[in-house]
């Protein structure tokens, strides 16, 4: 097994384990860190899986997008940005 295959296997195992933890977790706020772990692991899979110079661009786009998404979900649960000045 080459080092790339080993790395991509570790990444996908982390992603699937974290998805199982999301399924078993009851609290909504406690699900969000595991969602971040899934995003990081899948970013690693995308960066390793295809040897091409533009792959890092797709991985960066997915990283930025998924981080923005989970931040938006957490911010909406917390009540939105407008309540800060009261």
């Amino acid at each position: 097994m080459s080092p790339d295959e080993l790395a991509v296997t570790i990444c996908i195992v982390i992603a699937v384990y974290s998805a199982v933890r999301i399924a078993l977790e009851r609290n909504t706020l406690k699900k969000l860190p595991f969602l971040n772990v899934v995003s990081f692991a899948v970013t690693g899979v995308i960066a390793i899986i295809l040897p091409h110079p533009l792959t890092i661009l797709a991985a960066a786009a997915y990283f930025v997008g998924s981080t923005l998404e989970s931040n938006a979900i957490a911010s909406t649960i917390a009540g939105g940005p407008e309540e800060k000045d009261e």
């Binding site: 969602l35 899934v38 899948v42 899986i49 797709a58 998924s66």
Partner: peptide, 15 residues
């Protein structure tokens, strides 16, 4: 949150 997990599974297929 679960929909985000679904998207995380779809993107590597496209790549």
């Amino acid at each position: 949150i679960s929909l985000s997990v679904l998207v995380a599974g779809v993107i590597p297929f496209i790549v």
